[in-house]
Amino acid sequence: MRLVTHNMLQCHVRGCNVNNYPLQLSEVEIEIQETEFNSQFLRSMIRKLEWSALINSAREIGITTLPEVLPDDFDEDFLRNIHRVLLETHIQQGKMTCPNCNHVYLVRDGIPNMLLNESET
């Protein structure tokens, strides 16, 4: 799972509606998988990001190259860096924990297991 998708992810346990974002990353293995640079797509996704959540999640997996505040305009260097973080950084293994209900979603082979127990639905 790419980091951009993690930034879109919140807990979906029934009734867990507040403080359920972002899912906290731990025991994570990341892998860099190169992909084509597409500035048009990056620009449209940046508008959808929760920047502070992204900075936190990136920090949880050891990435400290992002600026604290989202710049007003995006130069090539910024876009190349954000491309690497959002679209080329994959969470291959690890845990994602809901900050509210503490449900743990496991990631195996890059695939998050989002299945719930019947009591959570």
């Binding site: 799972m1 998708t5 992810l9 919140q10 890059g110 998050p112 989002m114 299945l115 719930l116």
Partner: peptide, 25 residues
């Protein structure tokens, strides 16, 4: 899907349990 190296992100999920994506994703 993994073996075929598709570009998208894959989730093991039951649609009947609902989706966990932020509004407007």
């Amino acid at each position: 899907a993994l073996e075929r190296e598709v570009e998208g992100d894959l989730f093991l999920q039951d649609a009947g349990h609902g989706l966990g994506f932020r509004p407007g994703t």
